[in-house]
């Protein structure tokens, strides 16, 4: 079987197209590359949508934690503490079983036990908490002069937030937020290791890497392949966020533009 044939058979296996049975024996390098790469679709899917939705909630949580209203401040702080203080691994388990229990009582929760929605929600809440803390930190370090200038121009309320505070917050938070994004993509690998079932063996990259490692008793091929894919993904994320960073700081003269300093997090 040629490599091209393998790619046609297994390239979209993770989302359910192509050959139904996974390869059973005589694993070729090509099969491993194709299947693990096909699993990356899920990692990208989880990471992308969790980040996209999480960005808005994170802004709300960050602003909430800095709010002067005691009720809002407390609830935002607790949200952040709960999701940052406990392992994501346990959150996945808890989320899965919570949805399972809800499902047996209300039919509405049927899709929530599937990974594509349930895990996405857990990841979404988790990244909102982490990014919320980052945004809160950025809000605290907005230069006093900026807000005073806004006041002097007579900007108030929503306009003041949209024109001055929010852009400055993003500018300050962006390097840390980039780390958070990288880190979120890494933690998408946890999804199928927890309760969420890989329906019809449609799993993520780690799921397939583990499959190969279990079948061949040789971790030295699938895991480095997985690592390679993740390094590429990380580089893509860094370059995309770098572009946004450039746009956020486009008003500054060339030399003063802050560079992204990346210090990836380790685990959550």
């Amino acid at each position: 079987m040629s490599c091209w044939q393998t790619i046609q058979d297994y390239g979209l296996r993770a989302v359910g197209y192509g050959e139904r049975l996974l390869p059973r024996e005589d694993f070729t390098l090509c099969e491993q590359f194709t299947l693990i790469g096909s699993g990356m679709i899920w990692n990208v899917y989880f990471g992308f949508f969790a980040l996209l939705a999480g960005f808005f909630l994170a802004t709300a949580v960050g602003v909430g934690k800095a709010s002067s209203n005691r009720l809002i401040r407390k609830s935002a702080s607790w949200f952040i503490f709960v999701f940052r203080g406990s392992p994501l691994f346990i959150q996945f388990f808890f989320g899965y079983f919570l949805f399972l229990t809800l499902k047996s009582n209300y039919a509405f929760f049927d899709p929530f036990t599937a990974a594509w929605l349930g895990a996405l929600i857990v990841l979404f809440l988790n990244t909102s908490a982490y990014a919320g803390e980052i945004f809160y930190g950025a809000l605290q370090s907005i230069p006093k002069g900026d807000t005073e200038a806004a006041d002097a121009y007579g900007l108030t309320g929503w306009k003041r937030f949209k024109r001055v505070i929010w852009p400055t917050m993003l500018r300050l938070a962006w390097p840390a937020y980039t780390n958070e994004a990288i880190f979120l993509f890494h933690s998408t690998t946890l999804v199928f290791l927890t309760g969420f079932p890989a329906w019809q063996q449609r799993g993520d990259a780690l799921y397939y890497a583990q499959y190969f490692a279990d079948k061949t008793f040789n971790p030295f091929i699938p895991y480095p392949i997985l690592a390679g894919y993740f390094i590429v993904l990380t580089l893509i994320v860094i370059s995309l966020f770098g572009l946004i960073n450039r746009r956020l700081n486009r008003h500054l003269p060339q030399g003063q533009r802050p560079k992204l300093r990346l210090r990836p997090n380790l685990i959550r």
Partner: peptide, 18 residues
Amino acid sequence: RGVPDIAFFLFFVIALDQ
């Protein structure tokens, strides 16, 4: 750095054992 740590955990256990 740059690689999900879970992959490391899974990798090292088999690799060390072997």
